[in-house]
């Protein structure tokens, strides 16, 4: 047993599933992870997002106890993790995983179940349950190398569940999957959440995760930029709003007016930051405005209508997470 139970005896039901305190990991001079403080509540699906090389895999390997932190510590379900080998509170699915050739699907799960010391009856039951869970029951006797990428991914996910861990760490589970397999993966993640698991799933592509996660954290260059419930992160980051205005007639007038307003802001109107055309639709003008209430946006619409512009569409477009992510992780 690799988890120290000497501290935190009164483990509270609401202690977070995963908690890292100033977790730092260096490789030589390179700082892969810089004082990371990560908290994941129990039962949530946490999206851990960052560009390649941001420190996601390092974090997951630290959480799985595969490497030791340079400083800082990891707490899983309130217990301090002592790294240096396998431990039973997490199931870990690496970003690049291997399958053993010449091994059948059920034998693959049976092998890992044996590694965790499940006794024979329990092992058989677990293998059956997991094959059903990841929808591979009909491929039970197939050789692992004959499975498609998506099936192997699901099998690998199942392997991380053989010891029924409360916490699951999935490193880039969606990479290399076709759209259908991605949908299936999302379904699987929801099922796992319903089973009461806490899932930490990393990705460098935000859209893969946005729908299924209830919490996200964005990491770049080893530092956590923002972390929390999806809506909170969105609000916290949304410094500006984009207005999408579709002009039926009077496009020139509208542009001129908006550019004039950008140069000379007015009190009752929102402060404009940029006016540009939508490359995909000539009749649309996109206006970046500083965070402003609906009152001011309505005033802007009124001003445009008064100027004789005929508008068929006027709406505030929340900056999507993908763009937020790009803005956060590339602007340095």
């Amino acid at each position: 047993m690799r988890v120290c139970r000497c501290h935190h005896k009164g483990t509270h039901a609401m202690t977070p599933a995963i908690e890292t305190v100033n977790l730092t990991r260096r490789y030589g001079r390179m700082v892969a992870l810089d004082h990371l403080n990560l908290t994941v509540a129990r039962g949530s699906i946490y999206g851990f997002i960052g560009p390649n090389g941001a420190g996601k895999t390092t974090t997951l390997r630290l959480l799985a106890g595969l490497i030791e932190p340079t400083s800082g510590e990891v707490r899983l379900m309130g217990q301090r993790l002592i790294p240096g080998g396998g431990q039973r509170l997490v199931g870990y699915m690496p970003d690049f995983f291997g399958v053993y050739d010449d091994l059948r699907v059920w034998e693959y799960l049976d092998f890992f179940a044996r590694c965790y010391g499940l006794e024979a009856a329990r092992r058989r039951r677990t293998v059956d349950e997991l094959l059903n869970l990841v929808d591979l029951a009909d491929r039970r006797n197939a050789y692992v190398q004959s499975l498609s990428r998506g099936m192997q991914q699901r099998l690998c996910l199942a392997h991380a569940l053989v010891h029924d861990p409360p916490v699951l760490l999935l490193d880039e589970p969606a990479s290399g999957l076709d759209p259908r397999a991605r949908v299936e993966l999302r379904e699987l993640l929801r099922t796992l959440r319903d089973m009461g698991k806490t899932v930490l799933v990393s990705s460098h592509i935000l859209s893969e995760l946005a729908e299924v996660c209830n919490e996200i954290g964005i990491i770049d260059s080893g530092k956590m930029i923002v972390s929390g419930p999806v809506e909170m992160v969105r609000r916290q980051l949304a410094g500006s709003t984009r207005l999408r205005i579709r002009v039926l007639r009077g496009l020139e007038t509208a542009r001129a007016l908006l550019q004039q307003l950008e140069a000379t802001p007015e009190e009752e109107l929102p402060r404009l930051r940029g006016v540009r055309a939508d490359p995909s639709d000539e009749a649309v003008v996109l206006v970046e405005v500083e965070e402003s209430g609906e009152e001011r946006q309505a005033a802007l619409l009124t001003r445009l209508v008064q100027a004789g512009v005929v508008i068929s569409e006027f709406r505030a477009q929340a900056e999507n997470l993908e763009e937020l992510f790009l803005r956060l992780t590339t602007a340095e």
């Binding site: 039973r88 092998f111 590694c115 010391g117 006794e119 861990p165």
Partner: peptide
């Protein structure tokens, strides 16, 4: 602690796996 009660592996799992695959194929 959540999770099931676990005990030490009895037969070395690596041996079981290797023995299963060792004689497969020609």
């Amino acid at each position: 602690m959540r999770g099931i009660r676990l005990q030490r592996p009895q037969i070395n799992p690596i041996i079981v796996r290797e023995v299963r695959t060792r004689m497969r194929g020609a």
